[in-house]
């Protein structure tokens, strides 16, 4: 129950952060990815602010033997850099640029611009399913 409440709170704060920062505005995201054109650098502060917090806090969190409410830290299984990582990240960047949506904003967009979400979200889920098949 404690872990469910934490997950819910974490989601709430994340979702609010995505809307407040305007990461959910696809035109602003595309302007951020357009340094040779009509560049809007403000979204660099979203990742900058987020990473400043995680860099600072992770150092202290990972000094603990276990998380506060769980038996262990569930870290990524893979640590090596391979072609799949670069291929996957490249594909993701193409889709991010074409639409202005990464997964979080794509999900929240169901509440903001349903006309686009109804097209983008099913494609995202089908893509994830295809990627999963390809991964297995």
């Amino acid at each position: 129950m404690q872990r469910l409440i934490i997950a819910l709170m974490s989601g709430l704060i994340f979702g609010a952060g995505l809307v407040i920062s305007e990461m959910v505005n696809p035109v602003k995201v595309q302007n951020f990815l357009d340094p040779f054109g009509n560049w809007d650098a403000s979204l660099a502060f979203v990742m900058g602010g987020a990473v400043a917090v995680t860099l600072f806090t992770s150092r202290f969190i990972m000094k603990r033997k276990t998380p506060i409410f769980a038996d262990r830290f569930y870290m990524a299984a893979k640590t090596s850099i391979d072609g799949r990582l670069v291929l996957g990240a490249s594909l993701f960047g193409i889709g991010w640029g074409l639409s202005g949506y990464c997964p979080g904003p794509g999900i929240i967009n169901a509440l903001i611009n349903p006309a686009e979400a109804i097209v983008f979200l099913p494609a995202l889920i089908i893509g994830g399913w295809v990627g999963q098949r390809y991964s297995a």
Binding site: I6, A7, G17, F45, G49, A52, V53, T54
Partner: peptide, 19 residues
């Protein structure tokens, strides 16, 4: 953008520290 980013960082820190 900065406030939103900090909130996102806090969210990630919370999930890592507790869960």
């Amino acid at each position: 953008a900065l406030i939103g980013g900090i909130l996102i960082g806090i969210s990630a820190a919370l999930l890592l520290a507790f869960n």
